[in-house]
Amino acid sequence: MHTIRYFLGRLCGAVPTLFAIITITFFLVRVAPGGPFDQEQTLPPEVVANLNAAYGLDQPVWIQYARYLRGLAHFDFGPSFRYKDFTVTELIAQGLPVSFTLGALAISLALVGGVAIGTFAALRHRRAADHVSMVIAAVGIAIPSFVLLPALGLFFGIYLHWLPVAGWDEGSVADLVLPVIALCLPPLAYISRLTRGSMLEVLGSPYIRTAMAKGLPLGTIVFRHALRPALVPVASYLAPAVAMVMTGSLVVETIAGLPGIGRYLVQGALNRDYTLVLGMVIVYSSLLIFMGLVADILIAILDPRVRLEA
């Protein structure tokens, strides 16, 4: 009950934050030189004037802003300026399930794999397995996805013919394997280092010594007594990890030819597709704010000494 009230309170608190982000972005994209209808061939001035009138760009900026907010109140992100005949809502609704599946799989794999590797390394502290996994983790953080994904595609796709190099069929699991691996590796590597550090600290704490003095087997000590406190830093890293996966998905989706929403942010910004950029910023920032909230609640669940206070 307390948690639910806290959750709702924080959600309401997120509204002004989101509003500020929308406002800043709205004016910022308009400050950038150029406009949505600038092309290599200059259009006749009458055509540009007609287009501007059709999209309401001939109005003063504050009226455009007021109209945009009015649309948002009805969950209408407005028409895309570049993808003719599409609204931003339609574009995002088409791509979001693909990106969401990709991102959720990558985050889940990063969490499970990272925590498992980190815990294993901590239990093998200063032995070969510890060093090997931490070197792999360092490599995982260092290799960018635009190098890793083509390399994976070359090996598993072209040499071994196990998996498709790129492309997307609705509901095809095989298409997602390599992109998910490429996407999850940096956060996985980071989480494994985080877990190893916190697990080493917890394993050296007096209450683990008490647990050993009770004669508990190692598995019980790790899973019942050590894992929960060791996961607190991992939970704090959740929101940055989601941000990392979101920006990563931009590259990975492009290379793997997945019809997600990652491409819209960069394309929208380059094309001065004002509504599309705003729509993407709203989706991304809502997700980040939400993950921050989830992380705070997770920490309170992991550590009963933490009190949730709005």
Partner: peptide
């Protein structure tokens, strides 16, 4: 204080 597991 420190010899009991804080989350159990």
């Amino acid at each position: 204080q420190s010899a009991l597991t804080p989350h159990l």
